[in-house]
């Protein structure tokens, strides 16, 4: 019996949510009284051994045959490795690829799929987790009696605490089965940007900013906070910002530690995707803006005055701490 965790990498590097997945798996293994094993795919440096800091003693490394992502081929391969290692629970972080993979893997390994999971298992018999439902408006306990399960959990759900230790890295092999793969032509990642789902802090702005030319101050604030940038739906619909920054019920759902909403009214569909954030700051010139009801801290004022001041104050604070 074991718990297998897929350690996703991006251009040969692991990120914080990979280690969150590792930690999730080792804690789940502890609850089940079994051991957690890592699996990584692709060209990697020695960094796979770092999984040891998050409770993983052994990492399997699959190198050839999986240069580009294909949900079914990856699903077949991971199912094969899970079977060979007696894994009854497979843990995956809900990144874009992770979500596509989890479905394929659940079918290939004949497992129940528990998705949108926001907590460690609440019980192990039956295996029960808490999941988010209705776009952040509720939670639900989901259980399964199936012999095997895939747990797809939302990034930023558990605190990532770095321990010590080094995992041994062993090479593994698997076939992608007979999947007809998609042909990946190019991958275009924006350099130096923090992907929204894993960002610990997010600075977001709405129609109150009047036009795309005014985003300079938003990016400056994001930079001093080491934050990702997001926007409301109309802002991306009008092409002021890329669609990938659109958060909310029909955009990306996020749960950073800090969400700063600037010139966003706080419509129910917007709040649906951001209200799980731990701390929310709203800056709006309208004291009646609904966002103030969902926020922890609020400033009534003109964004064009408040935001530059806030950036300055944070710089000062950082300089003196």
């Amino acid at each position: 019996m074991s718990v297998l965790v897929y350690l996703e990498s991006w251009e040969g590097k692991f990120k914080k949510n990979t280690w969150e997945a590792a930690l999730y798996a080792s804690k789940t293994a502890e609850a089940l009284g079994s051991e957690a094993i890592g699996l990584c795919i692709g060209n990697l440096e020695d960094s796979a051994a770092e999984a040891g800091k998050y409770g993983i003693n052994k990492v399997l490394h699959l190198n050839s045959g999986f240069e580009s992502f294909d949900a079914n081929a990856y699903g077949n391969a991971i199912a094969e490795i899970a079977a060979a290692n007696g894994a009854e629970t497979i843990v995956i972080s809900a990144t874009f690829n992770g979500k596509a993979l989890a479905s394929a893997l659940a079918i290939a390994s004949d497992s129940a799929l528990l998705s949108n999971v926001v907590s460690l298992p609440e019980s192990t018999s039956p295996f029960t987790v808490k999941r988010g439902v209705f776009s952040g408006k509720g939670f639900n306990l989901l259980s399964t009696d199936a012999a095997k399960r895939v747990v797809l959990f939302v990034p930023n759900s558990i605190p990532v605490i770095e321990g010590s230790g080094e995992a041994s890295v062993e090479s593994a092999s698997a076939s992608g089965g007979d999947a007809t793969r998609v042909q990946v032509q190019s991958v275009d990642r924006v350099k130096g940007k923090i992907p929204l789902p894993e960002a610990e802090r997010v600075v977001s702005a709405g129609r109150g900013l009047k036009g795309p030319e005014n985003w300079g101050m938003i990016e400056e604030l994001a930079e001093v906070l080491d934050a990702g940038t997001a926007c409301s739906k109309p802002v991306s619909d009008m092409g002021w910002r890329p669609h990938s920054e659109h958060v909310g019920q029909t955009g990306i759902a996020i749960k950073p530690n800090l969400y700063v909403a600037i010139g966003i009214s706080g419509a129910i569909q917007h709040l649906a995707g951001v209200s799980a954030s731990k701390t929310i700051v709203a800056i709006n010139k309208d004291p009646e803006a609904p966002f103030f009801k969902a926020a922890d801290y609020g400033i009534v004022g003109d964004a064009f005055e408040v935001v530059p001041k806030l950036t300055e104050e944070i710089k000062k604070f950082k300089a003196s701490n």
């Binding site: 659940a106 949108n116 639900n140």
Partner: peptide, 18 residues
């Protein structure tokens, strides 16, 4: 339910690209 699971499962069941 924000599952995002159905289409990928359909693709896997049919063994079609997703």
């Amino acid at each position: 339910y924000n599952g995002g699971q159905v289409p990928g499962m359909v693709a896997a069941l049919l063994n079609w690209p997703f």
